[in-house]
Structures are given as C-alpha cells and as structure tokens.
Design a binder for these strands. Structure first.
Lengths: 161, 161
DNA sequence: CGTCCGGACGCAATAATCTTGCATGCCCGA
DNA sequence: TCGGGCATGCAAGATTATTGCGTCCGGACG
C-alpha cells in the first residue's frame, strides 16, 4: 500500500505550493526570492513534492473561448441500479471521454456531478445523448448550461496550521 | 477591444495543445518528437499560443488527499434578487475566496454551481456559512458533498476540424 | 509564367535554467 | 557534550530554452 502519511509541511512549503498552483512556470530563482531560499533549495523541495506524489502533474490551462466556440455545462446524474459494477462502468466511461472535464461522485439524491466541455450547443447535446441517454442505467439527468465562468482552477486551500 | 478572432490551428497545434493540457513539463525536444517538429519550431508555436492568450497559464496540480484531510463539495446556489449588482457582488466574493475552486453561472432554476475545497468537514460547513448563509441575498443553496473524484482537470476537447 | 513577400522551418550558437556534489550549520536525541 | 540526520548555499556541470540566419514553400500580383 503506497498510502504514506501526508508529509508535514512548513510555512515555506505552503507558500511554494500556493505559488506553484497558480503559476508553475516561474524560475527557481524567482520562487526562491519570494520564499527566501536559494534556487537549489527550492528545486529540492519541489523534487520532494513530486516524489511524495503531492504534485501529480503540471498542466497548461487554455482559454476556452480562444480555442473557438465553446459550450460548458454541468450535469447532475442519478443512476438507476446502484450496484458496484454499474458505478464502476459509469466512472470508466466518464474517464474515457474527452468531453468530460471533471466528474465527482456525490452524496444526496444526485449520484454524480459532471462538467462537460463541448465545441457547440449541438455537440453538447450529442455528448449528453452519448454519455447519459444511451445508458439505460441512468434514471435521470439534468443539464445546467454554463452562461459564464466566474472562477476556474484546481487550486486547493493551504493546509490548516 | 482585445477580442481577436480565434487563430486558426492546424493538426499539429491540436496535438501540441492536447499534450500540453495533460502534461506541460515535457521538453521541447520531447514534444517535437511526438508531433514531428524541431524543438525550435515547437518553441515558437508555444510562444504564439501564449501571445494569443490561448494558453493563459501553467499550473501545478496537487493531490488533494496528499496535502492532508480534504473535503470537496459542489454547491448549487440560487440568488434572491437577480439584479446585475447582486450578481456582480456574488461573483466577486467567489473569486476572492481561496476555498472556492470553481464557480459557474448557469441556466435553469439554479443560478450558480460552485466547487468548494476544504480541509475538514467542519471547515466545509464554515465555508458554506461564510459564503452563502451570511449572504441574505441567497434564496437557497444545496451542498453536494463529494465522495470520490472520478476525473479531474481543465482539459478542453480539440476544436472541431 | 515569373517574381516578390510573408510565414514556418531546421540548424547551430548562445543564453538561461536546472541539477548535483560538496562543505557547512542547525536541531534533536543519546 | 557528542554525534547523526537533514536542509541549506555555493559553485560547477548538464540540460533545456531562445534566437539569428539561411532556406523552403505557397499565395498574390504583375
């Protein structure tokens, strides 16, 4: 079991991680200046975050509407049969689909919240059909079309001290 | 008005952007090999994406549960007064709060979908109080606690050819 | 049909950044 | 008080990114 206890982080770690979560292509020199460390010390800390699996990857964030027409939607989904196997199959399908940006299994009357990214309204409808309508194990789903993205990102709040 | 028309992209651009969206710290050499270009050609394309605002930033993605105990939730929110000013104020508050990871304004009976990240269940409750309960312009909100993250990321599907 | 021009390319030199070996200093436990 | 482990800064050394230059298309125009 590779489930190591979360490594403990000092204040500099919190600072560094916060910086990296918002802008990961600063130089080690720049980062070092901001947190009061030398570039090599910063480099070693970051290497440790990677080893520990704390930083899983680094990604480029695109502006959806610069890429062309874009339609975002959040979809609330309730499965019919709740068996383990059905859940597994549903999750696998979400993971495999390029238009599914995020998918969370949630508590309450809805089973899943899905964030869908499409290139047109029509494309969005077809994604919904493909992902939810074609699946006869889905009891109900509701599509909430996104008018406006107020805030986006994957940043996590700093650990409680 | 800095709203230039979306620059047109060839197949190599689509490939590159897809690679960068999923793993942005490959070397130019590596990227070049995968798309069949020299490192410098890749570099110039990426520089152009940045200039055009297509790539807005590069971020490190953290594993929530490696950082310590983590509670995620999606919150559905309906405002009371729908005035422009009330919406602006709400949006500003979402953007300013570190525990709000994402916030979308949506169509339908709900006005907003909010993704909340907290360090404990208690913390989550307090965030909900702070963000939604203390605001007397919120008619109703519903918190969907996240059991499991099936898929995460901010990747967009490739443009239609 | 020929020429010109803009844009993208590869290569190679240069510049910037990252990585690592080493010696030092600090904190903690014996 | 005396180690041992660990993080640090500094200074090479290695990798990677950037840029200047000459070339090669492909379209516009004479």
């Amino acid at each position: 079991m590779p489930e190591a206890p979360p490594p403990r982080l000092d204040e500099i770690d919190a600072l560094l991680l916060d910086l990296l979560q918002h802008d990961a292509d600063r130089t080690l020199h720049d980062l070092g200046e901001r947190v009061g460390l030398s570039p090599s010390a910063v480099q070693r800390r970051i290497a440790r975050y990677r080893r520990d699996g704390l930083i899983t990857r680094q990604v480029a964030v695109l502006d959806p509407h610069r890429l062309g027409p874009t339609v975002l939607a959040t979809v609330l989904v309730t499965l019919d049969q709740e068996s383990f196997e059905h859940h597994r199959a549903f999750a696998a399908r979400m993971r495999a689909d390029a238009q599914v940006q995020q998918c969370y299994r949630v508590a309450g009357p809805w089973d899943y919240v899905v964030v869908l990214a499409s290139r047109s309204m029509r494309d969005c409808g077809r994604a919904g059909d493909r992902l939810f309508k074609a699946d006869d194990n889905i009891r109900r789903y509701e599509t909430l079309l996104v008018f406006d993205t107020v805030k986006t990102g994957l940043a996590l709040p700093p650990p409680l001290p």
